[in-house]
Write a protein that binds this DNA or RNA. Structure first.
Length: 434
RNA sequence: UCCUCGUUAGCUCAAUGGUAGAGCACUCGGCUGUUAACCGAGGGGUUGCAGGUUCGAGCCCUGCACGAGGAGCCA
């Protein structure tokens, strides 16, 4: 079918008032008053109300419009008009309509659905306005992470996903067959980051991460994305400063670029506007004291559980750093505190409003003897880590880094109930479909 | 792995141990400004699976499967 009009995406429709344009999209919903059809069109950038009047179109087009089903793909042409009655403020008075494919009975209705049904239909669920807003915010968060680090001279050096051994030795790994040998899906790029930081000074990796833990909570995914910066010649305090600047940059980017999406999600943006440096910093000792003052039973030396983290984060109105953890609850590579060897120079960043830990990081051991001693205590095999120890032989320097969980950050910024909603195809315990 | 709750129409949910229902969706009809449109009619069920108790089980009991929320672990 010949088409000589301007093609236009719905997000830009306001620039074409009075003009004849063509829009490609999918039918979000239809209504009819007999000789007047209202077709709400969706094109991935927004929604547009199209008016199809029996007086304005051929009998064929009017018949085709009356037979449209939800999610049918179409091409429509018509005049753009400003109209307060239309959602979004603009509508199209259609001259012509071409049905690309008439959709079969569509499973996802505009009414409520249960979680299991929506997850089974994730490939279709992504088409709904709420999910579109979440994916746009995720895009902004990822772009903001990259822009922030790129602007500060970081080099993207990605770590391998197939690895010969555990990075941290704590969580369960996915095992795979590597031409007859065992290999594992990466749970962190951090050890490789340390090598890369000694090569390039300031680096980051950005990729998927896999944890075979049988976690079943709103904060856990089996496959999730993490951005991990690593900086040579950097101590814990400098590392925390970088983190709060980065989180602030991310939140500001979303507030600037996704105002309408935050509105769709009914997110309280006041809480997000409070996210500016400096973030409160409390030591592990102070956090334990805080928990006890709230009447919670807590043994020094244990790691905080989810309810503990919630209580700590609720004591502040922005994200809070907890630093100087006991060595026993952190990974083997954490630098001991010179003043109190039972502590390590680590810091976690807890998101506000009970979303839990979004960053884990700290200063790494730069002394070979100390590192080998810790590896012994953790009963780690020598061979797979030989290259890692090597880094302490050739120009070792104090260095720090952290891992930022993309999904937890997006869930916090969006205010969603569960991290499964903020990744396109969540991998969960008991779910690898679709 | 543990604790709690759940599984009835395509979807969301009702139904004292006594004939399995509603709204939405779908099909047909009506309507020229609708806003998850509305009005009328119609089709649609092995009540998760397997046993048991009972004159009779969607409902009570046992086991299993699947799902949800939480714990542990962590981003």
């Amino acid at each position: 079918m010949p088409n000589l009009t301007t093609e236009c995406r719905i997000a830009a429709i306001g620039k074409h008032v009075g003009e004849v344009v063509t829009v490609h999209g999918w039918v979000y919903n239809t209504r009819s008053s007999g000789k007047l059809h209202f077709v709400i069109l969706r094109d991935g950038t927004g929604l547009l109300q199209c008016i199809i009047s029996k007086n304005d179109v051929s009998d064929e087009v009017f018949l085709a419009a009356s037979e449209l089903t939800q999610e049918s793909s179409v091409r429509v042409s018509g005049v753009v008009r400003e109209d307060k009655r239309a959602p979004g403020g603009y509508e199209m008075h259609v001259h012509d309509l071409h049905v690309v494919q008439l959709a079969e009975d569509y499973p996802i209705k505009l009414k409520e659905h249960g979680v299991e049904f929506l997850m089974d239909n994730r490939h279709l669920w992504l088409r709904t306005p709420r999910q579109a807003s979440i994916m746009r915010i995720r895009h902004t968060v990822v772009k903001a992470c990259r822009d922030f680090l790129d602007d500060r001279g970081f080099l993207l050096v990605d770590a391998p996903i197939l690895t010969p051994a555990a990075c941290e030795g704590t969580t369960t790994l996915f095992e795979t067959d590597y031409f007859g040998e065992k290999a594992y899906l990466s749970q962190s790029g951090q050890l490789y980051n340390e090598a890369n930081a000694m090569a390039f000074g300031k680096v980051y990796c950005f990729g998927p991460t896999f944890r075979a833990e049988k976690s079943k909570t709103r904060r856990h995914l089996v496959e999730f994305w993490m951005v991990e910066p690593e900086i040579a010649f950097c101590n814990l305090e400098e590392c925390m400063q970088l983190q709060e600047e980065m989180i602030t940059y991310i939140v500001c980017s979303v507030l600037e670029r996704n105002a309408r999406d935050l509105e769709t999600l009914e997110r309280d943006t006041e809480a997000l506007r409070r996210v500016v440096p400096p973030f409160p910093r409390i030591s592990y000792d102070e956090a334990v004291e805080l928990l006890r003052s709230k009447g919670m039973d807590f043994t020094w030396g244990e790691d905080f559980g989810a309810p503990d983290e919630t209580v700590i984060s609720q004591a502040f109105d922005k994200p809070v750093f907890v630093h100087h953890y006991p060595a026993q609850c952190k990974a083997f590579y954490m630098q001991p505190d010179p003043d109190r060897p039972e502590l390590v120079l680590s810091a976690d960043l807890l998101a506000s409003e009970g979303y839990g830990e979004i960053i884990g990081g700290g200063q790494r051991i730069h002394d070979r003897v100390v590192l080998e001693q810790r590896m012994n205590e953790h009963a780690l095999p020598e061979d797979p880590y030989r290259w890692y120890v090597d880094l302490r032989r050739y120009g070792s320097v104090p260095h720090s880094g952290f891992g930022l969980g993309i999904e937890r950050t997006v869930a916090w910024i969006c205010g969603t109930q569960h991290v499964r909603e903020v990744i396109p195809y969540p991998r969960l315990l008991n779910r690898i479909y679709p």
